[in-house]
Design a protein around this nucleic acid. Structure first.
Lengths: 194, 194
DNA sequence: CGAAAATTTGACATGACTCAACTGGAGTGG
DNA sequence: CCACTCCAGTTGAGTCATGTCAAATTTTCG
């Protein structure tokens, strides 16, 4: 179980056996069933969450009551409302599980302890945040530059694993289009994408 | 001159006189004239840039040759292609100046030195990145949830200073619409925004 | 002053939305 | 095991927001 966490961390930092023990002592393992919430709007995010197994969906609800998917989460990904976690303010986003999901979670105090005892972990989390930032910028750029069809094709080629495990109407929400539009552009016979 | 930099840094970290001296020794002051580039696509970003005076525009060019504004930069803001800076790979974005602009710049080696000599600066830069990330997420959420008119109204209320100093067609590019559309939605007499 | 750039306006095209109906599969209870 | 419901997905028709192309007008700046 811990292996999944340690293996992924090892991609970015090398951990000694003692450090692995420290990591093990600071994270909590937890499972959620399909449809359960890891985080609900209005709560203060108390944990950052590392997904061992399963699929999550991070979404916001706008003033008109519409849901908008900001991110899907898969094995080895971190999810959470970073802003809420860091500032200890109520979250604006929700995270629920699209499948039964297993995670490791760390609280803010434990994360501080981790930084203290294993300083190189600070580097790892800076990289996680940077990657998240870069992904967000890319998404802004693509929403400015590309049509719905192009964004869908990008999505399927970039995240084929997600496409297979998530209902279409959630993908539509992620892409910022209606399920009907998604259905239509999926059915049209490979229009030239220029 | 240094004051502008130090004042802003002081919002996040308290610096002793010696630390101010260190900061002063690691940053370089530079001026750019309107239309000059701080960064051009394909170059490796050697500096992170702090704006003392002026306005910048960060943009990408898509395969069709269209420019898309990712960010405007104003006094007290940091700009730069973070990914390129950190990974030392060629930048995908360009940054040019919409007015004569004065900046402080820091190289990667100097930034490492700064972290070493004034460790609390690491905290400052983590916060800068976090804020940038949060702004990017907000922008994704708003591009999913809102109409062009709503995004424009959000923009003008959130960045009135920018609206006054930047040509409309650049704002249109930032909003992801054509200059014609922007002109039209500006002229329509305050439609209900529900 | 005059050229180039920015903005506005008009006419028309189109991509994506809404509303509505229909299909098919998954789960539930009699 | 079938009838029923629920929900995701698809399809059709009409509408609307925004884009495209083109031209007129205004502003900027050398």
């Amino acid at each position: 179980m811990l292996d999944a966490l340690v293996n992924t961390l090892s991609k970015y930092v090398t951990l000694t056996p003692e450090e692995v023990t420290i990591v093990g002592s600071l994270f909590t393992f937890r499972t959620f069933r399909k449809h359960q919430y890891i985080l609900q709007e209005g709560e203060i995010t108390r944990h950052e969450t590392f997904i061992v197994k399963g699929v999550t969906r991070t979404f916001e609800v706008d003033e008109k009551g519409q849901e908008h998917v900001l991110q899907f989460g898969l094995e080895d990904w971190w999810v959470g409302d970073l802003y809420s976690f860091l500032t200890e303010t109520p979250a604006k986003s929700n995270i629920d599980c699209l499948e039964d999901t297993q995670v490791y979670q760390i609280t803010k105090p434990n994360l501080e302890t981790l930084y203290e005892k294993v300083p190189k972990m600070e580097r790892h989390f800076r990289i996680v945040i940077q990657n998240a930032y870069i992904a967000a910028i890319k998404r802004v750029a693509s929403s400015l530059a590309k049509s719905a069809t192009e964004r869908y094709l990008d999505f399927t080629s970039q995240y084929p694993q997600i496409e297979q495990r998530v209902p279409n109407h959630q993908i539509a929400s992620y892409l910022g289009i209606t399920p009907q539009s998604l259905s239509r552009l999926r059915s049209q016979p490979h229009k030239k994408q220029k």
